[in-house]
Computed example of a mutant assay.
Amino acid sequence: MKVLVAVKRVIDYNVKIRVKADNTGVETANVKMSMNPFDEIAVEEAIRMKEKGQATEIIVFSAGPAQCQETIRTALAMGADRGVLVQTDAELQPLAVAKLLKAVVDKEQPGLVIVGKQAIDDDSNQTGQMAAALLGWSQGTFANKLNLADGTAEVKREVDGGLENIKIKLPAVITTDLRLNEPRYASLPNIMKAKKKPIETLAPDALGVDVAPRLKVLKVEEPPKRKAGIKVKTVAELVDKLRNEAGVI
């Protein structure tokens, strides 16, 4: 079974985000970029499937500028087999990425698609669900644990009330949560091998997908700075402030 994993190039989680001076977005020039952490978990899960003999090939998909090849190479160094980059400089929103993902799935015919539950830059948490709907496939979102057997997938999901166990038919789209696994570090020999692994580059037009944005960002601002806390001497003073200053009671 082929497994297709989607990865996204995002600002590294250790970097402090800065808003552009014109408030049109966040600053990405000369900023360290890396693979979305949830996508790292998706890649690791696919590699573990291959190690168990459940997957025969791991294909890594990404969409965006040419620099996304670096993100794909990271996944190849972890253990994936080959990559597919849909190269575009357009602003990609979740629906456009889902359509591109569907087009690549139609081309590659994998038995399973694994994506991170959300990207840490926009926190949309939409692409996996949209892709499943476009494909007409089963979906298991927020996966905490995943087991494959006899053409089905047993998924333990993280939900607001705790954990939920579901069983779905393959093919399916799985979105990964933080506690699914601990991604491995790429070894130096594997990093060198990854340089020789193939990455196919496609254009959105070649896949018949319109990636024009449907939503417009009007303005991006930093959140207001939080005021310093104070100590109150009595419960009565606390209640007074909660009622008259905070307005929460």
Score class of each variant (00 low, 15 high):
L148D: 08
D240K: 10
D205L: 10
K167H: 08
E164F: 03
V19A: 00
A42C: 08
G116Y: 02
D89K: 00
D160F: 08
R82M: 07
A75C: 09
L76N: 03
V31H: 14
V209P: 02
K117C: 03
A153Q: 05
V209A: 06
V7M: 05
A98M: 00
A103Q: 01
I199Q: 04
E154W: 09
P204N: 00
V60T: 09
K195Q: 13
R179T: 15
D22S: 08
A133C: 05
A172W: 08
A143L: 12
K107F: 07
P37A: 01
G161M: 15
K219G: 06
M33T: 12
D122Q: 04
D12F: 03
V211N: 01
Q67H: 11
P223K: 06
D121Q: 00
P110K: 00
Q139W: 12
V105H: 07
L188R: 09
E51M: 06
E40Y: 01
T234Q: 03
A63Y: 10
M33K: 02
T74G: 12
V235K: 07
S62R: 02
I41E: 05
K225V: 08
S62E: 06
T127L: 02
K20L: 04
Y13S: 15
D81S: 04
E40I: 03
A228F: 10
V159S: 09
